[in-house]
């Protein structure tokens, strides 16, 4: 099978890869680049566990082809912390116990970051709807929503 050569940027670094035309961005991240922080929960865009940013836009990596990514800027959970400093959302998820099994956590964090990048002061309802494409079966969402709202408050106060 002939493969496609793609040059892209992932978490700020230039990356080149070869992929089959059917391979999704998620397949490429996980199976070719070993960036396994993005998870496959459904492969149909229904669970959000593979949430990544492509050119600053929140998308499911399972619903984009690897071949489409030439010249794009991709951000994954692996690029969220700044060196050894966690992103405030990551820190708040830990403090609020906003994860149990943790399989959905990378997707939630990427999606929540995208929310706060656009809206630094979301309401609970806005947060719940923004994150409705991220399924969590463990927590009942309570602590996740609290963690996001608390992060937003803290980031607004500039702490």
């Amino acid at each position: 099978m002939s493969k496609y050569h793609v040059s892209t940027t992932i978490n700020g670094d230039p990356v080149e890869y070869l992929c089959e035309p059917e391979q999704t961005l998620l397949d490429v991240l996980r199976d070719e680049l070993y960036l396994t922080g993005s998870k496959e929960g459904c492969a149909s865009g229904d669970c959000g566990a593979c949430s990544v940013l492509v050119d600053d836009r929140l998308v499911c990596a399972c619903l984009a082809l690897g071949a489409e990514m030439g010249g794009k800027k991709i951000e994954t959970i692996e690029g969220m912390a700044d060196g050894d400093e966690l992103h405030p959302l990551q820190q708040k998820f830990l403090e609020h116990a906003a994860l149990q099994c943790g399989i959905c956590t990378p997707g939630f964090l990427v999606a929540a970051k995208s929310l706060l990048d656009r809206n630094p002061d979301p309401t609970e309802e806005e947060t719940r709807y923004w994150l409705a494409g991220n399924l969590c079966r463990c927590t009942g969402y309570d602590k996740i929503i609290r963690a996001v709202l608390d992060t937003a408050a803290e980031m607004r106060s500039g702490k």
Partner: peptide
């Protein structure tokens, strides 16, 4: 926890 918020945890 940190492994799970950074994508490092291996499932």
């Amino acid at each position: 926890g940190v492994d799970k918020v950074t994508g490092r945890a291996k499932f």
